[in-house]
Nucleic acid binder design. Structure first.
Length: 1049
RNA sequence: GGGCGGUUAGCUCAGCGGUAGAGCACUACGUUGACAUCGUAGGGGUCACUGGUUCGAUCCCAGUACCGCCCA
């Protein structure tokens, strides 16, 4: 049955994928030769609720190419799929669902909520998986992993042990002292009320304002403020009783701990060490803060003086910690000005004593709430507006003429001269600069991120980063392209503590339990009688005491694991408390309640056996990257020692986007070395971004997102894959246009029709033996095939996907379809059955190998064509060839080169001379060497057909009015006197001779240069000489043609 | 401000010491039995600029300009 004219991608793709699935074609180890090396790739896990975008399509296409290639080569191949639980993103999806029915997460228990998330996970995990299948991704789906599998509460079907890996890693690091709890500044998302990672923060430039305020010096002190130019000449000088501060965030002034200036800044030297007043809040409680020096302020930026709010800005935090400046938290978890704690006068008084050094700053930055009563409870942006208004009303804003250009669009136009000149000094306005401000936004919540001082868990990354750096430095792990290793080093060498806790419900819960700290003065057994009497009990029962007690903690994989630790911990307490039973409760409040009740009961019953010591688990969950950092070992079953771990770890290649090189790659490196002491992968291939055709980043807001699946609908998955591969030059962004995809869809059609042609000519499946043809064309194409196989393998081995794809394109279209199929036509028409048989055999071999070589790039259409003939197995498991340039037959190659050159020259002349396409012309030869004659003899039919030549005749000299065609070893002429356009032919010859002359001038000039002959390599000199001889011969023939043309007039 | 990259045909990009390449687009011609999602032919480039190294530079080095990206 004849093939259709086109490949029907939409119908064939699902059918073919199902067939692969049914045959378990992608199972780990499928098609592996005995004793074959392992090749394993871990998919970068997409978000479980995510959808496939162009970046995924690119990333997974490259992985699939590598995986299919290795599988066909008989390697023991595993492509491990799976998804990431994506804490904040997934929780958000579920919360959004709840919001539709006016419900909130906090309306239910944590377990109820996470059950809903699991449901959501089940519903949406299929999406991305099906989408990957549409692309043709040959993952071993039977091994699909999930970063939350096996977590408490996981439903049936989610019994994997990834949770064990995550918890094991935490406990290990904790036990080694590499994880600690501390208060540090973190990116805080006021919408989701959790810490988030730097990666989840987008810094976006927005039009904003910079306000300039006066901080009055304490006690009305004054100084001379002098501005000088570069030469030290005085530009401006005045007496001031204030220091001028510029800020984009006036609401944080309430928490200022100091004003900093650069140590070299002479303008402020007279007042360094003095105190100034924060110009906001009730007058009677204005706080005084010191003026300090620090390298951070840039003397040329703003006024050169920077207010320091250590608890709400990352730079200020650094200044504050360097200089011992107290930190005051101003906002609550929702980004509103705090309304808790001490009333303002008391808080301000304490802060004052701290600033004067009369009191130490509390270790807890939330203890003192410095928000004045009138701002308490306001949203931070509302508070900003109020602060600005209040300061301005009080006259403490820096004032400038209304025409000051810094005011931007708000600036008044300079008045015309007749109205009083350029400036109107009498009209002063507050200096509010209009300028672009880079602001941090939560990538999910889209709200402004607030740097916040909170208690979080941290990995002391600096202490585990060593092996990760050394491995790349010493070449144990290779990062490609090499330049990305620089980013990697830069990040790792300047690594910050890694905040791993998140205030979410969806995720791996921190495996730490807390108990009340009873080891304090008030809980002493006063009499030392080893028993609690009534007085002691009452002291314990005082709830206030319990509420303010500290806490003790223990870390273990499960609650049962911490019991021993807490027992040891309370062993020092008075009897019978020291023997209290350890029980688990929900949270601290429950613990206080339970403990108090237990004591009360003991007091009545004196039954020590009923005393309990309640402990509760940390409510926080771990950063999703903490779990995905364990992806390579975790998906292979670690911490269990599985056969897969043994077989496929360390993995072979990680293919990932450059944007997460440090977030993910670096973390996997650190964690794999920390946990199993081995590299996670041999090679990291870092690819760039897929942009739109204009080079813009694809984004929903720009509306330029190209959906890879609709592209697949339109052009077929193979075309999309081939496009991505052909554009995957290492380290370069790719600009995707539909035209390009259409072009590769056409390529598929071209291939398809080559098979149609073959089928029509009785070509079947290739046999087991490699053909050994006698015909020049057949011998030639085998050599070309051998070359391309080597080229593809070399390119893929070096991750040059584009070279492999483009090489195949050029071979299949430019060699096989353009030439081999054409030259095969006269061979198939031969009356010699042996020639026909040989050609069938060769074509079968060549086309089948085209399918094999193309399969990693275009799996569907190739599998479909493969299946058109009876085969032993599917193409996905066909053997990758190992022949190479050994297939090249130099004689055949030289002859085909000669034939192709002749045909192209004749066609070119015909085209330029406007010879009607259908007209068959005569060809005359005037001189031809033996090789030339032989080549003509063997290929006459072919040349006649492809060049539309009637017949060849010999002549002493080229006929008048003919066009000369020089070839290697001779010369042909096309007698076109009837139709020739003398002028056109003269122009053609002039042009060609001119070009030859120019080339020859360069080449002979080079050969005439002694230093060239002395310095250049021999082969280059030889090559140059040969080229000169060749070009001179051609030029001479064309010159005589010019002369003949001249005779013609 | 620091770091990294880019600048080659109308567009998108390869190449990278030894005669400037591809795909797409463009122009002309063409249904010759695989393919019009095609065929044949053609036009089109001081390889950003300025210096340097070299027998020789689009390629190496230095600087300049412009454009990106990352980090502050």
């Amino acid at each position: 049955m004849a093939l259709d004219k086109n490949f029907d991608a939409s119908a064939a793709e699902p059918r073919i994928y199902d067939a692969w699935d049914a045959a378990n074609a992608f199972a780990a180890g499928a098609n592996a030769r005995p004793g074959a090396p392992a090749f394993s790739v871990m998919i970068p896990p997409p978000n479980v609720t995510g959808a496939l975008h162009m970046g995924h399509a690119f990333n997974n296409t490259l992985q699939d190419i590598l995986v299919r290639w290795h599988r066909m080569r008989g390697h023991d191949t595993l492509w491990q799929p799976g998804t990431d639980h994506a804490g904040i993103a997934t929780q958000m999806v579920v919360e959004r669902e709840l919001a539709k029915t006016n419900r909130r997460r906090t309306d239910m228990t944590r377990d109820e909520f996470t059950a809903l998330v699991w449901e959501q996970k089940r519903r949406s995990r299929g999406n991305i998986k099906e989408q990957l299948k549409r692309l043709g991704a040959s993952c071993d789906w039977s091994r699909e992993a999930f970063t939350m599998s096996g977590a408490p509460g996981a439903p049936e079907g989610e019994e994997g042990n990834f949770h064990d890996a995550v918890i094991r890693a935490f406990v290990d690091l904790y036990d080694k002292g590499l994880i600690y709890r501390g208060k540090r500044l973190v990116n805080w998302d006021p919408h989701f009320e959790t810490a988030i990672s730097d990666l989840e923060v987008e810094n976006i430039d927005r039009p904003g304002h910079m306000w300039h305020f006066k901080y009055p010096l304490a006690g009305g002190e004054t100084y001379t403020y002098v501005e000088r130019d570069e030469d030290g000449a005085v530009l401006f000088e005045e007496q001031r009783d204030y220091i001028s501060i510029a800020t984009t965030r006036p609401e944080t002034m309430l928490g200022d701990g100091a004003v900093a200036v650069h140590p070299s800044d002479e303008r402020y030297a007279p007042i360094v060490g003095k105190l100034c007043e924060i110009p906001v809040g009730p007058k009677e409680q204005r706080r005084l803060i010191p003026i300090i020096t620090d390298p951070y302020p840039d003397p040329d930026f703003g006024s050169g003086a920077v207010k320091i709010t250590g608890a709400h800005d990352f730079n200020d935090y650094g200044v504050a910690t360097r200089n011992g400046i107290p930190l005051y938290v101003l906002m609550d978890t929702r980004g509103r000005m705090r309304a808790d704690g001490l009333d303002y006068p008391e808080a301000a008084a304490r802060a004052g004593r701290i600033a004067r050094g009369e009191e130490d700053a509390p270790s807890d930055a939330t203890e003192i709430n410095l928000v004045p009563e009138e701002y308490r409870g306001l949203d931070r942006f509302e508070a900003r507006a109020r602060v600005v208004a209040d300061i301005t009303a009080e006259g403490l804003a820096v004032m400038v003429p209304a025409t000051d250009p810094r005011l931007g669009a708000q600036a008044a136009a300079p008045a015309a001269p007749e109205e009083g000149g350029e400036t109107r000094l009498d009209q002063l306005v507050p200096l509010v600069e209009e300028k672009t401000i880079t602001q941090p936004f939560g990538d999910r919540s889209k709200v402004v991120i607030e740097p916040m001082l909170t208690d979080q868990w941290f990995v002391d990354a600096a202490r585990i980063v060593g092996p990760a750096i050394d491995a790349v430095r010493q070449g144990e792990v290779r990062i490609l392209p090499e330049r990305d290793a620089k980013t990697y080093f830069h990040w790792l060498e300047n690594i910050e503590p890694w905040c791993i806790s998140r205030q979410l419900w969806w995720g791996h819960r921190v495996p730490v339990w807390y108990g009340l700290d009873l080891h304090s003065e008030s809980f002493r057994d006063d009499e030392g009688d080893d028993a609690l009497d009534e007085v002691e009990l009452i002291s314990l029962l005082t709830k206030d005491r319990l509420v303010h007690s500290g806490q003790r903690r223990q870390c273990a994989a499960r609650f049962e694991g911490v019991i021993e630790g807490f027992r040891d911990d309370i062993a020092a307490l008075p009897h019978p408390l020291n023997a209290a039973r350890i029980v688990e409760v929900e949270d601290r409040a429950a613990a206080i309640h339970t403990f108090a009740a237990s004591l009360a009961e003991y007091n009545v019953t004196q039954d020590a056996g009923r005393l309990v010591y309640p402990v509760w688990q940390d409510p926080d969950v771990l950063d999703t990257w903490f779990s995905s950092g364990l992806w390579p070992v975790g998906t292979l079953g670690w911490p269990e020692q599985t056969p897969e771990l043994e077989r496929y770890f360390p993995t072979s290649v990680l293919v990932t986007g450059f944007d997460i090189i440090f977030f993910w790659v670096a973390r996997m490196m650190m964690m794999q070395y920390a946990m199993v002491g081995q590299r996670p992968f041999d090679t990291v291939y870092v690819h760039a971004l897929v942009r739109d055709e204009k080079g813009r980043k694809m984004s929903k807001s720009l509306g330029n997102v190209i959906d890879p699946l609709s592209l697949c609908d339109e052009y077929g998955a193979d075309a999309v894959r081939f496009t991505l591969a052909s554009m995957a030059a290492m380290g370069r962004d790719l600009k995707l246009s539909k035209d390009r995809v259409a072009g590769y869809r056409n390529f598929g059609t071209k291939l398809w029709n080559a098979f149609r042609f073959a089928e029509m000519n009785g070509v079947g499946a290739s046999g087991p033996a490699r053909p050994t043809p006698r015909e020049t064309a057949n011998a030639w194409i085998l050599g070309e095939l051998g070359r391309i196989r080597e080229e593809v393998d070399t390119a893929l081995a070096e991750f040059r996907f584009n070279d492999a794809a483009n090489g195949l394109y050029a071979f299949v279209w430019g060699r096989v379809c353009d030439w081999y199929v054409e030259v095969a036509k006269p061979l198939f028409a031969s009356e010699d059955a042996a020639v026909v048989a040989e050609t069938r055999e060769t074509m079968a071999f060549v086309l089948d190998n085209c399918l094999i070589l193309l399969h990693p790039f275009m799996p569907f259409i190739t599998e479909e064509l493969w299946g058109q003939q009876p085969r032993d197995g599917m193409l996905v498991h066909a053997d990758w060839p190992d022949f190479g340039a050994d297939l090249v037959d130099p004689a055949a190659e030289a002859e085909m080169g000669w034939v192709i050159d002749l045909i192209e020259q004749i066609r070119s002349v015909r085209g330029e001379m406007n010879v009607p396409a259908g007209l068959k012309v005569e060809l005359v030869t005037t001189e031809l060497d033996t090789d030339g004659r032989a080549a003509w003899e063997r290929n006459a039919e072919l040349i006649r057909r492809l060049a539309r030549v009637e017949r060849l005749t010999e002549a002493e000299a080229a006929p008048k009015g003919s066009v000369t065609i020089p070839v290697r070893g001779g010369s042909f002429a096309l007698p076109l006197a009837e139709i020739i356009d003398v002028a056109a032919e003269r122009a053609r010859l002039d042009k060609t001779v001119g070009k030859l002359d120019k080339d020859l001038r360069g080449l002979t000039g080079r050969l005439g240069n002694d230093r060239f002959l002395a310095s250049a390599p021999d082969d280059v000199i030889e090559e140059t000489r040969a080229l000169v001889a060749e070009k001179e011969a051609q030029r001479d023939r064309l010159r005589s043609a010019q002369e003949r043309l001249a005779e013609l007039g």
